[in-house]
């Protein structure tokens, strides 16, 4: 009895190999698709911004006149926003991560907080905007100022920092902790002097990535109520402000009225992308340079 009909197999072999080859090319093309769109997107934005980015554009205040409009206000607003988001999200994120990894390890509470954080990461940013509007801007009566926007953004990016810090803390080997206990150190002394310094590069990478997420977000701040045309420059955390992506939003929607606004939006996008690219490069640099492999 023959188990395999060689002729039959032989006959099908050609189509099977052809299908394999075709599929491989198809898979490759779909991988390229995303990258081609990326190239077109960047080309389009850069092409539209040519001639619009100069010193005046960077240093001028906002204006309804496209020729005079600049983004100094949005740049300062972005910096002020980072000044609020960075410390708040760092304290909250690292504190939560230490608690989960060092104190509440494998407890029920840890599971609960962990599930809560991963669900929080899936809440749409616009809903965080509603939270910010209701609690920070209205209930605490801050208005649409840097502090209200910064606290909202800090909560929005909190899961990023928590997860990154947890991973960094988990990567510190147990024997380092045990050596520290063996020297007579207490738990907190061990965390403060051994665990945190060893996990700092990973934590910093997470914080920078969270910040770059925060300054690229638009929806929560639009919901909090950032005006479309804000002339005065922000001078502290209790001032009204605008940031680069919000400015892109208003210029894009108004480009139906004044065509040049589309160029201003494109120019702002170029600046925003450069800032984000720089921040991400720094994060990768820190990760590669200072991350210790145990």
């Amino acid at each position: 009895m023959k188990y395999v009909d060689a002729a039959q197999v032989q006959k099908k072999m050609g189509t099977r190999l052809l299908a394999n080859k075709l599929a491989k090319n198809l898979f490759f093309l779909s991988t390229l698709f995303g990258l081609i769109v990326l190239v077109i997107l960047i080309y389009r934005v850069v092409a539209q911004s040519i001639g619009w980015i100069d010193a005046d554009f960077i240093f001028n205040k906002l204006s309804t006149d496209p020729e005079k409009a600049g983004i100094m206000g949005a740049i300062l607003g972005t910096l002020w926003l980072m000044a609020v988001v960075a410390p708040v999200t760092m304290v909250l994120g690292v504190g939560t991560a230490i608690y989960l990894e060092e104190y509440a390890k494998k407890s029920r509470l840890q599971g609960f907080i962990q599930t809560n954080i991963s669900n929080l990461a899936g809440v749409p940013s616009v809903v965080f905007g509603i939270l910010g509007l209701t609690v920070f801007a209205r209930a605490l009566d801050l208005g649409s100022v840097v502090l209200a926007g910064g606290l909202t953004m800090a909560l929005l990016v909190l899961p990023v920092v928590v997860v990154a810090s947890q991973e960094a803390i988990r990567a510190v080997p147990q024997y380092l902790r045990e050596a520290s206990y063996g020297m007579g150190a207490t738990k907190w002394q061990t965390i403060k002097n051994i665990v945190l310094p060893a996990s700092l590069p990973g934590i910093l990478t997470g914080v920078i990535l969270a910040l770059s997420r925060a300054i690229g977000e638009t929806a929560p701040l639009v919901v909090i109520g950032i005006p479309a045309l804000l002339i005065p420059l922000p001078d502290g955390v209790l001032d009204k402000f605008t940031i680069l992506p919000v400015q892109v939003y208003y210029w894009t929607t108004d480009s139906a009225l004044v065509a040049e606004y589309a160029n201003l939006a494109a120019a702002t996008i170029v600046i925003l992308l450069i800032v984000l690219f720089a921040m991400n490069s720094v994060a990768i640099l820190i990760r590669n340079k200072f991350q210790k492999r145990f």
């Binding site: 990326l38 997107l41 770059s212 638009t218 892109v248 894009t252 480009s255 939006a265 494109a266 984000l276």
Partner: peptide
């Protein structure tokens, strides 16, 4: 990593 607002601009223009 590209902000969604940039995709919005791309879709619209």
């Amino acid at each position: 990593g590209i902000p969604t607002i940039v995709y919005g601009f791309f879709a619209f223009t």
